[in-house]
Design a protein around this nucleic acid. Structure first.
Length: 235
DNA sequence: AAGTTGGTCAACCGCAGGTGC
DNA sequence: CGCACCTGCGGTTGACCAACT
């Protein structure tokens, strides 16, 4: 048995939203919030739209905290780095960029960054010299890594409940001494210099850069498409 | 000036996962 | 436990616009 469609497509409006429709949705959201049922919202709000369409319009465009366009170099860098690290998990990537939506981030990557990154990769390959990363403060890098680890740990715990860290294959990079790790972090642009240590990062994360947290990260990363560059995936 | 091409981005589609009955 | 419904997500499409020929 096929899945029932979410709405009758012959009875709902489709395509671009008119200003009038936007106003109806905004007014309804301001009065009643959007926490209820999206499927019944259109009727209550007086909209001839599918609930999914209303949700998408609100989440991606009408929310008051949304930023449109004007991506900074910093944001572009974060998107590129996260994409290399976790792949097309747009919602996770967007959660690291206040005011940005998954759709917006995805569009920005597909239309601008993908080409840029490909070009840089080709240039780098041609010249055999690493492309210098954008300069970041150590604090920014630590915060960034800490948040990323939290997110990945959360996803990992959901995707493989009960998995013991002892059963996890520890990647090569984990065996790195601080020196190699520093270099790796620097190469990936997580640090502005080579003086960020795993201990510092561990302290920042909460005094625990142990096998368990790193291991859960690895168990998560095992489900990810592997990068051709061996050191890109594992942070 | 008209036609073509390429870039951008809002919106749609289908699927997966969560939840309640 | 199985089903139906709802939400969220990622991939894709298509309309619009600017740049180019």
């Amino acid at each position: 048995m096929g899945k029932a469609p979410c709405c009758d497509k012959t009875k709902v409006r489709r395509g671009p939203w008119s200003p009038e429709e936007d106003i109806l949705l905004i007014n309804f959201a301001q009065k009643h919030g959007t926490g209820g049922n999206w499927m019944t919202l259109p009727q209550k709000a007086g909209l001839r739209r599918c609930g999914k369409s209303c949700r998408l319009r609100w989440m991606n465009y009408l929310r008051p905290d949304i930023k449109h366009g004007g991506y900074t170099e910093e944001e572009g860098y974060i998107i590129s780095t996260l994409y290399k690290t976790i792949g097309s998990k747009w919602s996770i990537i967007a959660s690291h960029l206040p005011g940005r939506t998954d759709n917006d981030v995805k569009n920005y990557w597909n239309t601008k960054l993908k080409k840029k990154v490909t070009t840089i990769a080709e240039d780098t390959e041609a010249s055999q010299t690493p492309t210098p990363a954008i300069d970041h403060s150590i604090d920014q890098s630590k915060t960034f890594i800490s948040e990323l680890l939290n997110d990945l740990n959360e996803v990992s715990s959901k995707s493989s409940p009960g998995q013991e860290s002892s059963n996890i294959n520890i990647p090569d990079w984990f065996a790195y001494e601080n020196g190699e790790m520093n270099t790796l972090l620097w190469e990936l642009g997580f640090a502005s210099s080579s003086d960020t240590s795993m201990q510092e990062i561990g302290d920042h994360i909460g005094g625990d850069s142990s096998m368990a947290s790193i291991g859960s990260l690895w168990s998560f990363s095992e489900t990810m498409p592997q990068s051709s560059a061996t050191n890109e995936l594992y942070i």
